[in-house]
Amino acid sequence: MQAREIAAAKTALDQPGAPIVLFDHVQLAFDERVVLRDMSFTLLKGHTKIILGASGSGKSTALKIITGLLKSDAGVVWVNGQRVDQLGEREMMSVRADLGMIFQEGALFDSLTVRENVGYKLYEETDMPVDEVDRRVAEVLGFIGLAEQVDKMPSELSGGQRRRVAIARAMAFKPTILLYDEATTGLDPITAITVDDEIVKLRDLEGVSSIVVTHQLRDAFYVATHMAVRAADGTVRIVDATPEKEREAEFIMLREGVIVFEGDADSLRRSADPYIQTFLS
């Protein structure tokens, strides 16, 4: 490709609404067990993709393919303008610089403090001066409301706090894409909403493109139908989403590695498919 074309492609990809994650007929099997049969979808910049599905339907696997932690057997995967299904582990590192992943169980480093967890990438993998990293860690923990927990160990935190630390760790290096793997599963409704609010805030205030994996409909709809606005005095409020904003959140329903539904919140509610109806009720 000519340098000019690459530059043009880069500008095109930087526009809001450009595709940022793309799955094209992705397949993956572990030995004989087919986990993703044929998965295609596109996430647009600044939008939200909500992946629903029973456990074992392949949701975590799809996210791990995006981060390159697993390689698909067939199909094409684009992330941020790079074709990741063919990249080796070393080349993958540059793609991961723009990807934040919140793992299903948090996956916090249990030998490190909250501060070291949240600042991990900045401390270990960048040249950023330590006091600057400390500032960023404090800022991020402030954002998710855990400023006092900075010197605790992960084992001393509650489940909801651990999820929020995991979000803080994923957002600390300012990635443009965040992947949430059941960030609210197992949390009480009140705590779950605080986590959902973080997802909404990151999307609407920091311009993050997000993929939200969940099997809890309440959280899925909450993220799709709310938006964060910053008032003139700087305070942030979560309000009902405008219809345009609501259309920027798209649902995908996975069933045994196949997409059985794709569309916005409204069409999901109206869907007549019996499987979806069972899932919704």
Partner: peptide, 18 residues
């Protein structure tokens, strides 16, 4: 088994080196 190795990789660290 707690995905911490995957988390290292996702954060740009090679677990073999670390």
């Amino acid at each position: 088994v707690t995905d911490q190795i995957n988390a290292l990789r996702a954060l740009g660290t090679d677990p073999v080196r670390k």
